[in-house]
Structures are given as structure tokens and as C-alpha cells.
Amino acid sequence: MASQILPLELIDRCIGSRIWVIMKNDREFTGTLLGFDDFVNMVLEDVTEFEITPKGRKTTKLAQTLLNGNNICMLVPGSDGPDGS
């Protein structure tokens, strides 16, 4: 049987790379992943926050940021967000 990889091992391999974080609500983040913990709290660098509203998208640039894992829904490794690939 092929060696099983745990979900968080995959995320561990993304450290140092860009990652796209999709929250449970209408909010998304992209940034360079510096680290995370067992709650999937994440430290990101060179962050862009996207608020998706009916009127369009509001973006905010952030420096090093600790994102609370509580509201994270999905992670897309290696992606630069809604505009990237």
C-alpha cells in the first residue's frame, strides 16, 4: 500500500510557498505560509485579504499575520488566490 500522507503533512510541505485560504464566510486570504499548528492557526507573510461582497471584492494588504484556524474552511496549496492559478 502506498504510504499514507496525513492532511497536515501536505500543508507542512507548503511552508515557504504561496497558499490560498478560504474561510467559512465570504473571506479569503493569500500569502506565503511560514508555519501553522494543530488547530491550523496559520502564520502568513505578504498577505492579501479578500472580502467578497455583492458589490465586488475588497482587498487589504497585510504584513506578517496570524490567522485564527477557527474559521478556516479550505486551503489551496501553491495558489495565489482568486486571481491566480
Partner: peptide
């Protein structure tokens, strides 16, 4: 250097921050 949440928090205590609520 792990860049873990704990490391981040150690570095940021005493600094100006933005805390955004949900």
C-alpha cells in the same frame, strides 16, 4: 526557525498590531 504561531506571537508582543474580528 519554524515560523509557527507561537514564534509569531513571541515576536509580536509589545508591537503595534491590527486585530480583526470575524
Amino acid at each position: 526557525h519554524t515560523g509557527s504561531p507561537t514564534d509569531f506571537l513571541k515576536g509580536v508582543v509589545g508591537k503595534r498590531v491590527v486585530v480583526r474580528l470575524t
